[in-house]
Design a protein around this nucleic acid. Sequence first.
RNA 1: GCCAGGGUGGCAGAGUCUGGCCGAACGCGUCCGCCUGCAGAGCGGAUCAUCGCCGGUUCAAAUCCGGCCCCUGGCUCCA
Length: 495
Amino acid sequence: MTLRVTNSLTGEREDFDPDEEPVLLYYCGLTTSDPAHLGHARGWVHVDVMHRWLEELGYEVRHVENFTDVNEKIVARVGESGDSEADVARSYIGTIIDDMRSLNLKRAEVYPRVSEHIPEIIDLVERLVDRGYAYEANGSVYFDVTSFEDYGKLSNQDVEEMEAQGSPDEQSEKRNPADFALWKADGVEPEEIEDHQHGGAAPAADACKTAQTWDSPWGEGRPGWHIECSAMSMTHLDETIDIHVGGQDLVFPHHENEIAQSEAATGDTFARYWLHVRLLEAPDDEKMSSSLGNFESVAEAIEHYGPNVVRTFLLSTAYHSPATYNSETVGEAEQRWDALERGYERAREAVDSIDARTKVESESLRTAVEDTRSDFEDAMNDDFNTRGALTALRELTNAVNAHLDDVEEYDYRALREAIETFERLGGEVLGLAFGDSADDGDVELAEDLVELVLDVREQERAAGNYDRADDLRADLEALGVEVQDTDDGPEFRLG
RNA sequence: GCCAGGGUGGCAGAGUCUGGCCGAACGCGUCCGCCUGCAGAGCGGAUCAUCGCCGGUUCAAAUCCGGCCCCUGGCUCCA
C-alpha cells in the first residue's frame, strides 16, 4: 500500500509520488512576534510526523521551515522583548527553537529567515517585473493578479469578487483591488502597528524607527509578506517542490499568492502537493489561558502535561480533522499516553524477568504484534491518519496486558517484538519518548528518595497503620508520584 | 454572501474516496466480577448508535446521487 495524501489543490486524495529524492518539504513557519502556542504546535507535530513517516517509508527528506522575522507585528513588540525589530525577532526565535526541542521535533535541514534572504527576494521580484507580472508604483511593487491565469486555483476564489488587500494607500496604487505587494516602499508607519501593540511596548513612532529596510532597485523598502516563502523555498529546495504544508488559515491569501508569484516567475509548478493543517479550536466558554486567547503557550502546555501527552493530544486527531482543545480532550490524551507507556514498561519488565531461551509461544500476542504493524502502516499511509496509528498501538498494549495477566509463562520473542514495535512506531515515527524517564541524575535521586518513603510506608502497612500509609501515598501523589501496590510490592511512576 | 471542512453512542472519535468483512474500531464514562486493607493499575464481562433530515440508485448504503437543515474555519495579521 502506498502513501496517499489529500491535496488541497485538487481536493482529492492522491497517491504520493515524488519526482525524485530527496523529497522536498516546505513548512510555512511562524512570524516571530509572539511565543508559540498549542495551535502552532499542532502544525509542527503533524509535519514532524509526516517527515518521520516518509523516512520510515524509505524516502530521504529535505525539510525546510522558515521564520518570518520581518513583519509589522514584530515591530509592534519593540520595547517588550528587545530594542529593535531584529532584537525582538531574535529573542522569539530563541524561545521558539526551545519549544521545538522540548516537543521532540526532528530538526529541519534549514530554518531560513526573511532578513537573510533579501537579495533572493529582490531577484525574484525583478524577475516578475521583467516578465510583466508585476509593476512598480511609488517605490512599491505589486503583483498583477489579472496577469496570472490560474490565480485563485488553490482557494477557488474568483478574482472579480475578491475584497481588496492592503492599506488604503496601497489601494490607490494598485491596478486591481486584489493585487498584492511584493515590495513595500519605505519602512513601517506607526498606524500599521498600533493595533498590535501590548503594554510594555515602545511608542509606535519610536518602534517604527527600528524597523529594518533594505535598498532595492525601487528604493528603500521592505519585502511583502508572501514573496519570502517563494524565495526561500526556491533557494533551499528547488523551483518545484514536492510537499508544501501550512495552516489552513494560510490558504488564502498567502498560499494563493505564493503560487501565483512562484509559477509566474518560473513557468513551472511551485508545489505538487499542498497539505493544510486544520486549525486547533478552543471553546470560548472554557478559558485555558489568560495570555494567549484560549490556548496555552507551548512552554506552558509542556510544563503542565509533558511533551508526550502534548504530542499524543495533537496526534489524537488527524492533521486534517477538526480538533478541540479543552480539559476533556487533553485528559483523554493523558490517559492514552499513560496506558501506552505502562504497556511498554510492563513488556520491558516482563522480558527482563524471563529466560531468553524460553520456548513459550503466544499465538495471540504474535498476531497482535503483526496486526499492530499493518494497522499502523495502513493508517499512516491513509493521509497520515495519526489517530489510527495511535489506536493500533493501543491495541498492542491491550494484547501485552492480556498476555501478561492471563498466562503463566511469557513469550519472550513476542514481547521483544512488541517492545521493538513501540520503540519504532511509537518512538521513531510518532516521536513519543518511551522509557525515557530515568536517564538523568536528578531522576535517579528522586527515585531513590521515593523508594525510601515507600519503605517507611510498607512498615506502616505491615503494622496495620493504614491511615499513615494512605497519607504517605497521598503526599507522594501530590508531588506527582503515582503509587501502586502489587503482589510484588509497591511500584511507582514519576509524573 | 463567497470558499473550505464537518454533522456517527453520555463524551471523544475512526470508518465515507475504493457500497457488502460496519450486526459500526480504540479509548473515556457507567455497571458487574477477579485482584486488593483501601485506592490505583491491570484482567474478564456487560452497558451505550434508528450513522443530521428527506428522497433516490442498488440484491446491498454511514458509505453513491439529489434537495434541505445545522456547525466550524477562512475570505483582515495569523500554524
